[in-house]
Structure formats: C-alpha cells, structure tokens
C-alpha cells in the first residue's frame, strides 16, 4: 500500500535480525557491563583496584563450584552436595595438615575426598538411575554429617603457612584464589569444547536416548560429570580452608544454591544440552558485583537478598523470552 510502511517494517526486521544474535551471544555480558557502569557512577569506590580484586577474590569459591555445576546441569542433572563436599574436603585437608602430613599431600587428600564424593553421586545417578536431585540431596546431608563427626563439630585452626598461602596469599599483588579460578575456567573451557568427553556431555544433555543409541558410554560419562563436580568442590574446599585459615564443618552452607544461580544466570539451560562455561563466569560476576555494589551503596543486607532473588528470576525470564 504505502511504500513508507513497507520500508519501515523491512527495517525493523533487519534490526531484529541484527540485534538478536548479538543478544544471544553477549546478553549477560552486556548486563554485567551495565551493572558495573551503574555501580561505578553511584559508588565511586567500586572501581578501585582493591575493590575489584576483592570482588574477584570473594567470587572465586562460588566460581569454582559453579564450573563443576555447569557440567552437571549441561547433562540435565543437578548437584546439591557441593557445599557439604566443600566443608568435608576442608576439614580433612586441615586435619591431615595439622597431623603433620606435607601440605601438598594434605590438600590433595582433601581434593581427592571431593572427587570420591562425586564418584559416589555419579554412580547412584548414572548406574542405579536414581534422580540426581535425590541422590545429591542425600549426599549433601551425609557429607555434612561426616564433616561434623570427624571434626567433632568444631573449627580446626590451620597452621601450615604454605597451605594458608593457597587461600589467603597473593602473587604479584593478586590473591591466589583468583589464579586458581582462572586456571579452572581455562581448563573447563578446553574440556567442554575440545575433548570427546565434553562433546558427549552436550550430546547426552541434548538427547540422552540418541546418545545411548549412538554408542556413547552414557553411564561412564555421567559418573565423570559428577566426579568433576566433586573435584571442583574439593578444590573449593581447600581454597576456602586456606582463606579462612581453618577447616570448618559448617562451611559452604547453601553455596550450592549460589553456584546453581550463577550457572542459570550464565544462560545454561536446566533442560540440558545448552550452555557455556563463559556464561557461568559472567553469572558468578553478576552476583558478586551486585552484592558488592549494594553493600557499597549501604543497601541493607536483607534488601540485598530480595534484589538478588529477583535478579535470578528476571534473568531466567529474559532467557525464556529470548527463545
């Protein structure tokens, strides 16, 4: 009818076509950047180097847990036990270190404990085919119980300097946990993109039945998936012990929920098969920037909880609208 209306409708289509892929790729990164800009404007201290390092340091534990959680959620599963695993790994490594074992060995034992806890989760999920939610809800409880039993319920003060360095030290002015977090993410990126295991994770998450019929060893892959999550929780537990200079049986309570929130914020779908590790680190940082910035702005802690909760729901809603 009117050439002008045609022209404008044509434009809007091409605009949509241009904007959508960019949003799909970078949506959450844009939100993170916007969030940083807003914080920088209203809370000038936000951009100080010390504050930035503080944000990264504080988010490192959640980030390491979330890296493992990403792999689990990519297969369509869930791991609720990572907070408890973190506590048990911390307690065991501190006990061994205080008992005179070489610090490196004590730390490896703590990490190994996490790995083992993951293997058990994986076995029950993959081989006996129990729902991951139930299996890890159970291990969340018994692992925490074990941590209390062996520690006698009390925090164990960590004495070894080398061990403490891994959680509380710094290299070239940057806290050690940040390095550990970066190494973990580089490795996980590589594993998911460039190993057969990684691609099988996506295949199983996308279509488990097809994966089975295609000859993928689904059980073995799933056991490895939960083992990786346990391993990450073990690493996080050791770093945490170093940072707070003690092994605490009640460490990491509800950390699994922070990790899950970060993964979901990062665009990984609960259904499985969709998501990237880069998204997860952005999700972790959004949560960290939010709580740091709100604190700087003197927002009451209780209000912070309300804001964070709403951010999670809105982020997932945006994600759904996108699809």
């Amino acid at each position: 009818m009117n050439p002008n209306t045609q022209l404008s409708s044509g434009n809007s289509v091409s605009l949509k076509q241009k904007v959508l892929p960019v949003w799909n790729q970078l949506g959450m990164l844009i939100i993170l950047i916007l969030l940083c800009i807003i914080m920088a404007i209203f809370a000038p201290y936000f951009t100080e180097v010390n504050n930035v390092l503080n944000i990264l340091k504080q988010s490192s534990i959640t980030a390491i847990l979330a890296a493992g959680m990403t792999v689990v959620i990519l297969t369509g599963g869930i791991d609720l036990s990572v907070g408890s695993t973190l506590a048990l790994s911390g307690v065991i490594s501190v006990m061994l270190s205080n008992a005179g074992f070489p610090p490196l060995l004590a730390m490896l034992a703590g990490i190994g404990t996490g790995y083992l806890a993951g293997v058990i989760n994986g076995y029950f999920t993959a081989v006996t085919k129990l729902p991951a939610f139930v299996v890890t809800l159970g291990s969340m409880t018994y692992l925490r119980g074990i941590a209390f039993v062996i520690s006698g319920g009390l925090p164990l003060v960590l004495k070894n300097k080398f061990f403490i360095f891994f959680g509380a030290g710094s290299i070239l002015g940057i806290p050690t946990p940040i390095y550990i977090m970066m190494v973990v993410y580089v490795i996980m990126f590589f594993v998911l993109k460039y190993t057969m295991f990684g691609r099988h994770v996506y295949a199983i998450g996308g279509n488990e039945e097809a994966a089975r019929l295609t000859g993928i060893k689904v059980e073995k892959t799933l056991i490895n998936v939960y083992s990786i999550s346990g391993l990450m929780a073990g690493i996080a537990g050791v770093v945490m012990a170093g940072r707070v200079i003690s092994g605490q049986p009640n460490a990491g309570v509800s950390f699994e929920l922070d990790a899950i929130a970060a993964v979901i914020l990062g665009g990984t779908s609960f259904v499985g098969g969709v998501g990237r590790i880069q998204g997860t680190i952005i999700g972790v940082l959004i949560m960290a920037v939010l709580s740091n910035g709100l604190t700087l702005l003197n927002v009451d802690f209780y209000w912070q909880m309300i804001v964070k909760g709403l951010v999670i729901v809105i982020a997932v809603l945006l994600d759904k609208l996108r699809n």
Partner: peptide, 21 residues
Amino acid sequence: KEQGLFPNLSVKENMIMNQMH
C-alpha cells in the same frame, strides 16, 4: 527427533558423533 538427533549441536558434530575418537 527423539532417538537420532542431538538438537543443540552442529551438522558436523551430529555426523561425527560415533567416530569422534
């Protein structure tokens, strides 16, 4: 759809999934 394809992966990966090793 239910038994054959990996919906989130590329044409390439769908083709090669059996022989990735």
